[in-house]
Design a protein around this nucleic acid. Sequence first.
DNA 1: CTTGACTCCCAAAACGTTTTGGAGAATCTT
DNA 2: AAGATTCTCCAAAACGTTTTGGGAGTCAAG
Lengths: 336, 336
Amino acid sequence: MANLKQLAQSLGLSITTVSRALDGYADVSAATRERVREAADKVGYRPNASARRLRRQRAELVAVTLPSDPGHIGPPHFLDMLSGCAEHLAAAGLNLVIAPVPRGESELDICRRFVDGRRVDAMLLVRTKRKDERVEFLQSRGIPFVTNGRTESLLPHPYIDGDGFAGFRAATLRFHAAGHRRIGHVAGPQEYYFAHDRCRGWRAAMEECGLATDLCAEGAPLEQGGYLAALELLRQPSRPTALVCATDEMAIGALRALREVDGGNQISIVGHDDLPMGAFTSPPLSTMRMTGEHLGASFASLLLRAIGGEPAEELQELHAIEFVDRDSHRRPAKAA
Amino acid sequence: MANLKQLAQSLGLSITTVSRALDGYADVSAATRERVREAADKVGYRPNASARRLRRQRAELVAVTLPSDPGHIGPPHFLDMLSGCAEHLAAAGLNLVIAPVPRGESELDICRRFVDGRRVDAMLLVRTKRKDERVEFLQSRGIPFVTNGRTESLLPHPYIDGDGFAGFRAATLRFHAAGHRRIGHVAGPQEYYFAHDRCRGWRAAMEECGLATDLCAEGAPLEQGGYLAALELLRQPSRPTALVCATDEMAIGALRALREVDGGNQISIVGHDDLPMGAFTSPPLSTMRMTGEHLGASFASLLLRAIGGEPAEELQELHAIEFVDRDSHRRPAKAA
DNA sequence: CTTGACTCCCAAAACGTTTTGGAGAATCTT
DNA sequence: AAGATTCTCCAAAACGTTTTGGGAGTCAAG
């Protein structure tokens, strides 16, 4: 409603003094400060954001690019993460803007527009690819950013990721220890770092156990992709007795394939992400999840520290994966 | 990188001319315009967003408040909607910022901060309550906004909503026509308009058919809430033979309750939202969905028209509900 | 009385754009 | 040839804040 000029006029003070009083500077007497604060409260004064941003040369904004690739965006709890991140950024005076990728434009174009138009102070990147051009661009521009997921970039950059390799290796070894020998992998698109990482974990475990690594099928990281990939594996002459799925959504699709092929209660299966939905599938889906609470807060913290100039090496978080045992991984390994 | 002043200097032109050339005004000669455009392209000039916003007195931003109430945010396709909305807003030069509600603050505080700080040109409200204080506040401030879901506000306001009353009435009547007489309703929290609306639809159908309306249990709009509410209904001496659930997530929880109580294949069930997941439950979940493609685009369009000053009455969209028949609604109505 | 330190305040200069209200030159009209 | 019109361009004034670099007063010490 009111601006600084009007407020100052009504108080018989200068703009400077009012501004400094509200910001709590020491060179305004306590009495004046109080008087100013009261008046500001009374008229509901809020500094004009655009003016402040212009003067301070900060956008007070962080953008997160939303990949629109396969018609679907990350796991469903992704929005919870964004929400948590936005909440903690807001506490530091930053707002989170979402930057979807329109048809015909690349994610790179979006980054460029936001960065070169000085619309943001930092960026948050999700669904990283092994070779991610967005990362390279932002590094070349020197703008702070954090990724959800690692990349194969040569320069280090801030990220938060789960140790998919270790998690999928452990899950596979556990199946092996339970007697399984034909352990299949329902893989996500290998250009994504997370999918490749998880696939490598499965492969490493299989090789350690001296098992062949041909029971691997790739699909889109959605129910349908998991369904199709699982069907492909189940058509093999020598069927898998256990399936390690790159995501819970794929695992849920795979469960449907199992139901169609063998009634659904013969083959062990495990997913990753710990979707709430997994507790309600039939059988209840055993899964894995990244450890760590309040992921959104961690992203916000890394972003703020990156904006503060901390070096990338200190802003990398690799979280362990833990099992969430429900029921779907307990099917016996039938004798060959 | 460069600003208008530097660009003008390098071209030997005034700031004014360069600005107008880039904006395509007719009072710049075609030759000069071309020359300016080329130079701007070459140095990758983008107008400074903060400066433009200050001068134009527009924030170029729209905020959407994210309710953090029950630890979960709307149906999973909500993010797709946001993404689509953001994409279409971006085409008009507006960005979408997400405004989560921090602990200890009300959604109203958030609205106030955004509106009074002139941080946004409009707002998008989701999860409306029957009596929604955010709506009243925004109306009193006269700032454009659109809601996802109606309210019981006396003044009309722009909204997009599904006709939950008609949808749930139709679903209930269909069960009645199939011979069901004990039709239960798994209801969402009644302070939300959508939940109340759907409940009213079920109730209206029951009364039309001369049936009692006591088979109604309320729960949180999540799997767990549906699970508990369904259990409650199944414990009744006279069990329902069909369940109409306020959301798919609740229906999926209810499916689990059915499995526990009767093996899961005796009672008909239908949800609402058409979650992708529903095709992969067991049995595949029959559901309903709001008609209309590209919901995000519709929201964007309404927002832009509201900003443009169109009256609220012309900015209200009530969409019909259609059935998505899979399998879970086909259980026979057993004789009483 | 001068000096220095301290307290409280303020004028003015940014920040980078858009827009207003012309100015000068060229072209057209009569 | 004088006036009217059109074509290009530009200086300067915003927009509302933060920050710089003091300027008056007051008070105590020298």
